[in-house]
Write a protein that binds this DNA or RNA. Structure first.
Lengths: 255, 255
DNA sequence: TATAAGACCTCACGTAACTGGAGGTTCAAG
DNA sequence: CTTGAACCTCCAGTTACGTGAGGTCTTATA
């Protein structure tokens, strides 16, 4: 094409860094429609098109959809609408950011756990991951049942303490899977249950455990919680564990 | 369906919070294929499917594509591969987060500027947005031309100072657009140029401005920079501005 | 037991923002 | 005048589903 202020699509693509195919697409959806050579049909881009494309790229970067951008560009008084939508856009980005951050901390915790624990049964691992992800929903559940104290207590725990809890949980789960099948009165089994219950007490504190035990929760709600935080055990393992715990409670003279 | 451990798709959807259509889709792509009633073709989900679905949801949350998840699930020893890919996934999320953060600060700066400046010509606004976005690329350009000092100086500026610079830039651009057409020797025009140059000196410091002036930069590189940071002016406005500045330089006895 | 409501089935198109390829036309250089 | 690069249009595919049509199956009630 050669002439100044008149670019072929190839030159224009080169200059702006936007692919030819994308420029075709923008033309197709009416976002950026350059002049066309009347006989050949070749696109002719001009200086103004560079400016328009820069607007498009900018708005895209800010998170606007191409459809919104099309509308924004066709209104000449952009600033008015922009001013309103910017705040909205900021909110959207904030939520995206939070989601990403949560995924990142989850991954980091999983990596830590894998590093320090080595091979972990995948059921255990996913149970852990899932419960991390639904932490906020679990908190909602607790608050609905007047257990805000627990939520507060948990939120005060540092990242390190949480990893410690993760590890405790994993070790306990591993042991359950190892010991499963033995009679529930078995010394080793009862020792494991004891260790687990003591760890829980230590983490939450006696008073909170008591509150949790006292809380009146209906069967249906328990179901709901179980869906939120899936057990890493098979149904049989779970049954066995429950029996072993009941036995322990009786022996220890708890209710 | 009614029976325990056998759920119709509707029940299963209810229980897990995953839409029926999504379950259909997961079946279709071989991600989660429940038993089917031989005559009716109705899907029958069981307890194991809940666990599988939870794995799927977890991995999806961590940012994996359904295709990857399919592979991960079909390998029974998940933890090995997971351990490797988690780190990669973390990197991807990090980049996403950075992009989002940059968009957020850009939007915040734009909002601030709009608040304090009111109506702004859209060309000016987009020129500003665009240059914010390409800040890192502009820094690369500067570093390539041995102007790392400038980059360092700029990086030390606080967010507030940057907003001040934005506003200076906008006011100057507004005035250029207002005064455009007047003779370049006009007092008002020359006053504006003076104000602008002084503001630049103040922001960067005399020494840096000198360095920038001394830097040997080729025409082609200048072109490149212009593509990175588009001028908010029309070509005519730009020409007029250049002439006015040259006149000012001569008058002020600068080179 | 007949019937109607509701749950389920498959098929197929639509979404966003492109990318890639096939097959044909135009341009620029030799 | 030829040839190869650049360009054109049209079609298909991508992800993770949503939506709706039109037909079948189950379940509750009359």
């Amino acid at each position: 094409m050669g002439e100044i202020n008149r670019y072929s699509i190839g030159e224009f693509s080169e200059k702006t860094g936007v692919s030819i195919r994308t420029l075709h697409y923008y033309d197709e959806i009416g976002l950026l429609q350059p002049e066309k050579h009347p006989s050949s049909g070749h696109r002719i881009y001009k200086h103004q098109d560079i400016l328009t494309l820069q607007k498009i790229v900018s708005l895209k970067f800010l998170g606007y959809s191409l459809e919104k951008i099309t509308n924004l560009l066709h209104q000449s008084i952009i600033t008015v609408d922009l001013n309103e939508t910017l705040a909205l856009q900021l909110e959207v980005l904030k939520k995206d950011k939070e989601r990403i951050e949560q995924s990142m901390t989850t991954i980091q915790r999983v990596i830590k756990v894998l590093e320090e624990e080595g091979g972990v049964d995948s059921a255990i691992l996913f149970s852990l991951i899932h419960s991390m992800q639904t932490e906020s929903i679990q908190n909602e559940w607790l608050e609905r049942h007047n257990l805000t104290v627990v939520v507060e207590k948990l939120s005060k725990k540092t990242e390190k303490e949480k990893i410690t809890l993760d590890k405790t949980f994993i070790q306990m789960a591993k042991e359950v899977k190892k010991l499963y099948g033995k009679p529930i009165q078995d010394q080793e089994v009862q020792k494991m249950i004891k260790a687990f219950i003591e760890a829980s007490f230590e983490f939450l504190g006696d008073d909170l455990v008591q509150q949790l035990a006292d809380a009146e929760v209906e069967e249906l709600d328990i179901q709901e919680l179980e869906n939120l935080a899936p057990s890493p055990f098979t149904e049989d393992e779970q049954k066995w564990l429950n029996q072993a715990m009941e036995y322990y409670m009786k022996e220890a003279g708890m209710e």
